Simulated scan of single mutants.
Amino acid sequence: MGEAARKRQRQAQAAKSVAQARGASSERNKIIAIVVAVVVVAAVVIGGVVWINSSKNSTEGTAIAPTTSTTLGPGVVEKLDGVVVSVGKPGAPKTIDLYADFLCPYCKQLQDSYGPKMEQAVNSGQLTVKYHMVTLLNENSDPPGYSLDSANAALAAVSSQKFTAFHDALFKSQPEEGGRGYDKAQLIKLGHDLGITDPKFDQTVNAGTYDKQIQAAFQQTENDPNLAQDFPNGAHGFGTPTVAVNGKAISTQGDWLTGVLNGTGS
């Protein structure tokens, strides 16, 4: 073999070695990239799980803030009739029935928008509000049962004339649907922070005294055709919130409360 041929052979071998080295390096880079991608995905998943769990359990160990804006005027009475709470002055010319679930975000929207206006009408003697606490979303807390526990606790506050303040505080600090609600100890503490000193309040909350009555009333409410409504998705039936006048559901679109007070929304 001539010198030129040997030179070409050495060059070919060198080029092959370089190619092999480059190939190995490329494979190493691919492996590193895959490992990095897996680590990143794992970090994102773990971070997401931690964030979801943190969000879901955001009520744990917290106190429900008592409201400072709720003030019932002189002569306003909170009265319990079965599991319906009437709030108003005797002889008020207008009455509405309000059906709501303490876990329902749309109920919170209604309370945020119209709660102060309703309470102003109550204080002025124009309106009586009959509150019906329903348990439509009772299975939608984790653990289930917050809708029922909160409804029972709100009823327990009536005898101390603290229902409205308790009701408003629960909507103000509403838990996230699908997450942890407030437990009985937290509900009791809210009552104490609002000034309830009667030991029967604690006993009623812990025992779930009104639970069976609340559930029976909800079954009747859910099956009442006068309370059924049409929804944007085409469904028809009972939903929350529902406002009723003379036993029949009315639309809560627009300034429905002014219509009720003026006699045009009945």
Rank of each mutant, 00 (worst) to 15 (best):
L190P: 04
D142Y: 08
E139I: 04
S160A: 15
R180M: 14
S173T: 15
I196W: 04
T164D: 12
D149K: 13
V205R: 10
A154S: 15
P175G: 03
T197S: 14
D198G: 11
A156P: 04
D202M: 02
P199Q: 11
L194G: 07
T204A: 15
K162G: 07
D183R: 06
N138C: 02
L170Q: 09
F201R: 05
F171H: 12
K162L: 06
F163H: 05
G179Y: 09
D183N: 15
F171V: 13
D198E: 09
N152G: 14
I188A: 02
A169T: 13
D168G: 01
T197H: 07
P143F: 12
K184P: 04
T164Y: 11
G195L: 03
E176C: 00
L190V: 10
Y182R: 02
N152H: 05
T204R: 13
T164R: 13
V158A: 00
A156G: 14
K172W: 03
A151F: 06
P144Q: 15
T204Y: 09
I188H: 07
I196V: 11
A165V: 04
E139S: 15
A165R: 08
E177H: 07
F163T: 06
K172A: 14
Q203I: 03
F166T: 07
A153N: 06
V158P: 07
A169M: 00
G191M: 07
L148E: 14
I188K: 08
A165I: 05
G181N: 07
G191Y: 04
L148D: 08
D183I: 04
L148A: 14
K189C: 01
L137Q: 03
F166R: 01
K172L: 08
Q161A: 12
F171C: 11
F171T: 11
S159A: 15
A169I: 00
A156I: 10
D142V: 08
Q174P: 02
R180I: 01
D168K: 12
S150K: 08
L155K: 11
D168V: 11
D142Q: 14
Q203Y: 01
N152T: 07
P175M: 02
K189Q: 15
P199C: 13
L148V: 10
S147L: 01
K200A: 15
Q203D: 15
A157S: 12
A156Y: 06
A151N: 00
K162F: 00
S141W: 12
S173H: 05
A165G: 09
G179N: 08
A156W: 04
S141I: 12
E139R: 15
A157P: 10
L148W: 05
G195A: 06
Q161L: 03
G178I: 01
D168L: 02
R180K: 14
Q174F: 09
V205P: 14
A156N: 03
Q161Y: 01
P199K: 14
E139H: 08
L155W: 10
L190D: 02
V205K: 11
Y146T: 05
A169S: 15
F201P: 04
N152K: 08
S147Y: 03
K200M: 07
A153L: 06
S147N: 05
D198F: 10
D183L: 09
S141M: 13
G195M: 02
D198H: 10
P143R: 14
L194E: 01
A154L: 10
A165M: 07
G178D: 05
D193H: 02
L137V: 03
L137T: 06
E177K: 12
